[in-house]
Design a protein around this nucleic acid. Structure first.
Lengths: 166, 166
DNA sequence: GGTTAAAATTTTAAGATTGAAATATTTTTG
DNA sequence: CAAAAATATTTCAATCTTAAAATTTTAACC
């Protein structure tokens, strides 16, 4: 009931679908690499920062109350140890604060400093402009189409969630 | 003449397009991260190798005559120094051969060994199955649609190629 | 209540990645 | 032809990244 494809719904078995999906994956990889590369370079040149740091700040910006380390790594889909190092550097730069969570001494809460919030606000605006420019040949409707197709279509593949009849 | 969007073609200026394209980028990033993570884990567990190594072998497999180091890094959209290290490990594993190009002693040619070709052939088949499984909820037509939209739409943004009327 | 299991984080070792500098070779050019 | 510019690659230091092991703290269980 999610897959609305009419006549194509049947052909999800043959070689053709396999090939198209592999082609799609290679295309996604190429586009991602290209855009990531551009953003990395621009963040470095314009703001003397890196994409991972930007991503971390972005996640923290949306969470005003702060995030646990594990929430942060889950949000970014990277490993725990990874986030530890990036946060270290952001703390050293005065952009992030780390504080214990009262009541559970295992947990570390991280949040943006006022300076971090301000700096991110600046960057985020310019960043959106960059992305829009890099994808300028894709109109709003096509963008929305792709988002929709890629949205629900992915989720149920990894850990075998419940409720999958068939 | 490439952009066939009828009525949307006009709205590539407003805030709406910006937002949709940013949303698209975040979605692309998420999907890529997810699939990359799955493939990495499976390559490690099933074949004791890594995604970068697989990518390098894939590029070399298609180029039977071998590739220059610079052609390889260009194909994968990564830095030169990066490829050097990955090739080193593949050579140590006996999967890749490095040889000088007669006539230009600056150039290093890299190509798969027979063992490398065989091993990649095995992996590639399984790999395609993984990708297709991970994207199984996307039918062939949708996959093709996305590929087409993402295809030409990207290229002309970076270095300002010649021949762009308009 | 003390032992064990679970959870959150950090540390560690290996690899991947970049950008810049260094090397080596070829091409250009005066 | 010699000096300079261009090209191809490697080396280097810094950062990012992962998976696994180690640490610390909390929860569970008998």
């Amino acid at each position: 009931m999610i897959n609305l494809a009419t006549d194509e719904a049947v052909e999800n078995h043959g070689d053709e679908g396999d090939k198209q999906r592999l082609r799609l994956w290679l295309r996604l990889l190429k586009v991602s690499r290209y855009i990531e590369g551009e953003l990395r370079e621009r963040l470095r040149k314009e703001y003397a920062t890196t994409l991972p740091r930007f991503d971390v700040m972005s996640a923290l910006y949306r969470a005003e109350k702060g995030l646990k380390m594990s929430e942060l790594s889950a949000a970014l889909m990277v490993s725990n140890g990874n986030v530890t190092g990036i946060i270290e550097r952001l703390v050293a730069e005065g952009l992030v604060l780390r504080e214990p969570l009262p009541g559970d001494r295992r947990v570390m809460l991280v949040l943006l400093t006022p300076e971090g919030r301000e700096k991110f606000r600046d960057m985020a605006l310019v960043h959106q402009g960059w992305v829009s420019e890099l994808l300028k040949n894709i109109n709003a409707r096509d963008a929305a189409t792709i988002c929709d197709i890629l949205d629900v279509k992915l989720v149920r593949t990894s850990a075998g969630r419940e409720g999958e009849k068939e």
